[in-house]
Structures are given as structure tokens and as C-alpha cells.
């Protein structure tokens, strides 16, 4: 066994897949916590969200975490691509008649397809919000909710988000909401297999922990995408009404 086994072995690829995947699950929880602040209304909500956005873009610890997240996403995608290519090579001749639905879930067999959808979502999502926040001209919030002038004006990401899901400001708002919800459904399916699969790959699943891991995975794959998906629907609806 060479020293590079931890990088080259098929099992090592699974460890990395599981490890980065589970890390990204933790990231989702953090991201969700941030997004949920969009439910806060009025100028207080706006201030709260923009303060949070500032913290997330300037705090050095968060910065390090964000780089770890980017690397994890890239690694997860590239590792997944390598695995998919190798797996296709392992069966050059397909079955004339195959019935995979008899023994496995659709999501488990289509993680690559779901992952590709998610990668496309991440790219557009970052173009719509992250890139705007960092590189383009943004509105500023100059006063806090009490009307006190801020020493340093806050980048108003809250307004960017609100406008993005407002049909009066963005003609594509409804499309954006629909695509967002579809992407959250995709992430739900991806997680429905991925969460427990990560634990299995890392060797955590056994008689003792199997049921709790499977149950947590199911709950996670429903609750997290659902909460994410409600937010743009909520923002759209309150601005239409």
C-alpha cells in the first residue's frame, strides 16, 4: 500500500466526498440562519440583515470559513465528476433491460445530475447576490432604525434581495422564485441520499446509529430546503400584495 492511498484509493475518494458533503450540510444550516432574518420586517429587519451581511463579508474568521466552503464545493464537484467517469467505465456495456427502481431510490442513482443542477444554481445564485455585493455599485443604508447617521454607511444587500424578488423592480422575479424553489427541491433530493451516504462512507453507520442517521437525514433533507424555499415565496408575495 503506497503512501498516497489516502488520495488515490476508491475509498479515499468516498471519504472526501462524504467529508466535504457533510461540511456543506453544516454550511447550509449557517446560510439558512442568515436567510431567516429576511422574515424580519421594516427598517429594523433591513438594518439587521445588512449588519449581518457586513459581518459575513468582513469578519476574518468567516472569511476563512468561506474559502473552506468554496474549496469544499469545488472538491465535491470535481471528486464527484471523477467518480462518475470512473463508474461509467466500470460498465462499458449497459443492460438491454434494467429495473433499478426495484432496489434503489431515484435520488441515489442521480446524484450527479442533481449535483450539476445545484452547481448551476450556485453559479447563478452567486452572480445575483454575492457578485453584486462585492463588485457592483450597491445602494447604501446611511442611518440606523432610530434615525442615527451611521459613521460608516452599510451596503444595502437587503434592498438588492427585496428588489430581486419584486416583480415591479425585476421583470424576471417570478421566474427567479420558481427556479429558486426548483433548485431547493433538487437540493432536497440530493440531501435525501447524500446526508446518510456521507455518514456511511465515513464508516459511522452501524446497527447502533443507522436509524438515527437515516432519520436525521430525512428530516434535514425536507426541513432545510423547505425553509430556504419559503423565503423567496414570502418576499415575492408580500411585495405583490
Amino acid at each position: 500500500m503506497s503512501k498516497s492511498a489516502i488520495l488515490k484509493s476508491s475509498l479515499a475518494k468516498k471519504y472526501w466526498m462524504g467529508f466535504t458533503g457533510l461540511f456543506l450540510c453544516v454550511f447550509l444550516l449557517g446560510h439558512l440562519a442568515g436567510n431567516l432574518q429576511l422574515f424580519m420586517t421594516g427598517v429594523e429587519g433591513q438594518f439587521q440583515f445588512n449588519e449581518y451581511a457586513k459581518f459575513m463579508t468582513t469578519n476574518p474568521a468567516v472569511k476563512i470559513l468561506s474559502y473552506v466552503t468554496y474549496i469544499s464545493i469545488l472538491f465535491h464537484a470535481i471528486d464527484g465528476l471523477i467518480l462518475t467517469i470512473r463508474n461509467a467505465k466500470a460498465r462499458p456495456q449497459k443492460y438491454a433491460y434494467n429495473k433499478p427502481s426495484a432496489n434503489s431510490t431515484w435520488a441515489s442513482r442521480n446524484m450527479g445530475v442533481l449535483g450539476t443542477v445545484l452547481l448551476a444554481f450556485i453559479v447563478t445564485h452567486m452572480t445575483n447576490f454575492w457578485a453584486k455585493m462585492h463588485f457592483s455599485e450597491v445602494p447604501f443604508m446611511t442611518a440606523d432604525p432610530e434615525g442615527k447617521i451611521l459613521e460608516e454607511p452599510l451596503k444595502d444587500l437587503h434592498t438588492i434581495v427585496m428588489q430581486f424578488f419584486n416583480p415591479a423592480e425585476n421583470s424576471m422575479a417570478l421566474v427567479a422564485v420558481i427556479l429558486y424553489v426548483v433548485s431547493m427541491i433538487a437540493i432536497g433530493f440530493h440531501l435525501s441520499h447524500g446526508f446518510q451516504s456521507g455518514f456511511q462512507s465515513l464508516g459511522f453507520k452501524n446497527e447502533k446509529y443507522k436509524s438515527i442517521i437515516d432519520l436525521s437525514g430525512k428530516a434535514f433533507s425536507i426541513v432545510v430546503p423547505l425553509l430556504f424555499a419559503i423565503i423567496p415565496i414570502y418576499l415575492y408575495v408580500i411585495q405583490v400584495m
Binding site: S10, N87, N103, T105, M111
Partner: peptide, 8 residues
Amino acid sequence: GNCTNTGA
């Protein structure tokens, strides 16, 4: 190939 934990 590599296992993707489909369970089939």
C-alpha cells in the same frame, strides 16, 4: 466502480 451507497 466506486460505491455510491445506493443500497441496490
